[in-house]
Amino acid sequence: MSSALLEVRNLRVEFPTRRGTLRAVDDISFSIAPGEVLGVVGESGAGKSLTGAAIIGLLEPPGRIAAGEILLEGRRIDNLPYEELRKIRGRQIGAIFQDPLTSLNPLYRVGDQIIETIRTHLPLSEAQARKRAIDLLQEVGISSAAERVDHYPHQFSGGMRQRVVIALALCAEPRLIVADEPTTALDVSIQAQIITLIKRLCREHKTAVMLVTHDMGVIAETADRVAVMYAGRIAEIGPVRDVVQNAKHPYTQGLMGAIPSIGGAEERLAQIEGSMPRLTAIPPGCAFNPRCPKAFDRCRVDRPEPIPVGTTQVACWLYEDARAKEAVHG
């Protein structure tokens, strides 16, 4: 674990409000290895985007990191002054946001936005940076890049703009990219292209990705590992294959059951009853217990911490016994 590129330890994100403090991300820990793609999945409001924002140091006030640490290559970055963190953003941690239509400044040529970013982080001349910008645009699959570099964002389609955004995120060769719902705002036909592109580029540049999405299909296709978040906590985290094919947490099982399959029997799509609790009304014990089909007494009282079960970690009391047995037999 010491070789981790990014390590998040007991992170807690809070929003002080007039009616008390809301805990949007509650005591989560995970790590990302160099070059690894970690998918973070969950419903809206589960805290996945906030976790991403906390890592790049762009939580919007009054949101703040209330506890925990974030380490990048062993160096703590969550308590750095703004200017120090600014130098890390873009250079070591890149970001891709949800809506490519609004991510680019409409008044500047895309080339100028890329060149500005490159020259902020790398000691290149204007001409060198421009050359690099054209190469990058080419690399993200924009044809006649030498010409397109002087175009304005409104002259690109949504999918093309997201490619520009990806070029911008990659332009200073960061080690990690936080991609927050990078395909949600795109046409379904474009989504696959963009995901493939992100996957290919990150493999080639050996960039790790934290891919935040609510699309389990995207995760299954792209990620090496996946973290399932629910009400500000990680319910289950492990290799994507194990989580998808052999989900342990009842919530994950529910999520998997809710994915329609082509060629499957024509039955009603399974759904999880109820909805995620609001931050103001998270039940005691396991936050999922009111919706959980397998909940028992302990779930309503004690909050489960993640425990290793096989290759995954699961925050569920169902596996407490299994682990105890394992300990005895092992």
């Binding site: 790049i56 991510s103 902020t120 955004v165």
Partner: peptide, 10 residues
């Protein structure tokens, strides 16, 4: 785009 500009470390 302002958030994205910040995220790029400008």
């Amino acid at each position: 785009f302002i958030k994205f500009a910040r995220a790029r470390g400008l």
